[in-house]
Design a protein around this nucleic acid. Structure first.
Lengths: 130, 130
DNA sequence: AACACATGTTAGCTTAGTTAACATGAATTT
DNA sequence: AAATTCATGTTAACTAAGCTAACATGTGTT
């Protein structure tokens, strides 16, 4: 019953995640090697991160900054993402039209950005634009 | 006064956008060639799409499905993204600590997924996992 | 029949991401 | 103090993903 939603959808390449977190690729991969994070993979084996993953990396970063080592962080951050499994439990999914799926997805995306939070000031996110 | 927010942040590679929209890369590039969409670019010239861009592509897709041609679509969809410019109007940005920026960004990301919408059922999004 | 439109396909090239190995400075252990 | 471990940097060799440009094609238009 994988509760799939937009927070766990693998969307971001490692390059984007580097920008979003200000971590190096080396760090991100190392955290994965050490079981702190479990990004999905593309067919070609490239990492694909979800919002949850990015969020988790930011938490890791904060704890690192506080001087906590990876073992400690691993304790503190409960494994929200399962390290392995599923792949097997794939019940026959009910069909849905592509159009309906598009509509749902579009709605999801629309929601993502509706909240009236103060927008980041110009210049501060310049690292995201090359 | 670019009102920069998470909806206009360039985050997605064309591969992801293909999955999200069920358009082909050829189609997406063609729509760009014809002035319907203006994705950002990485340093290395690869396209990077924002939520706004994805949303716009879904709108384009719907209109295409209705038999409207690109010229018509171009009329109907107001150019929300400016085809060029800015780059010049870059006032000296006030400083902000990296940590504060992280915190803000993290908050933005946290919000993205807070709404209690029904989650998509398993299997329907399987194309997003390879 | 000729043309335009929207998309497919292919080729050649560049950018981005992969693992694995070795390097290193700061802590920790022996 | 020497050896070890931790977290990260750097590099090399390779693969995947993305780029533009060119040519192909089916459908619709003039």
């Amino acid at each position: 019953m994988s509760d799939m939603n937009r927070r766990s959808m693998p969307l971001f390449s490692i390059g984007i995640v580097k920008s979003l977190t200000a971590l190096t690729a080396r760090q991100i991969r190392y955290y994965e090697d050490n079981g702190l994070i479990f990004p999905a993979r593309t067919e070609g084996n490239q990492r694909l991160f979800s919002f949850n993953d990015v969020d988790r990396l930011l938490e890791i970063k904060e704890l690192i900054d506080k001087g906590i080592n990876l073992a400690g962080i691993k304790q503190m951050l409960p494994t929200r993402e399962k390290p392995a499994a599923e792949t097997l439990e794939t019940p026959i999914e009910p069909e849905i039209s592509d159009k309906a799926l598009r509509q749902m997805l579009r709605q999801e995306l629309m929601d993502t950005g509706r909240l009236g939070k103060a927008s980041l000031r110009q210049g501060e996110l310049s690292r995201f634009f090359h």
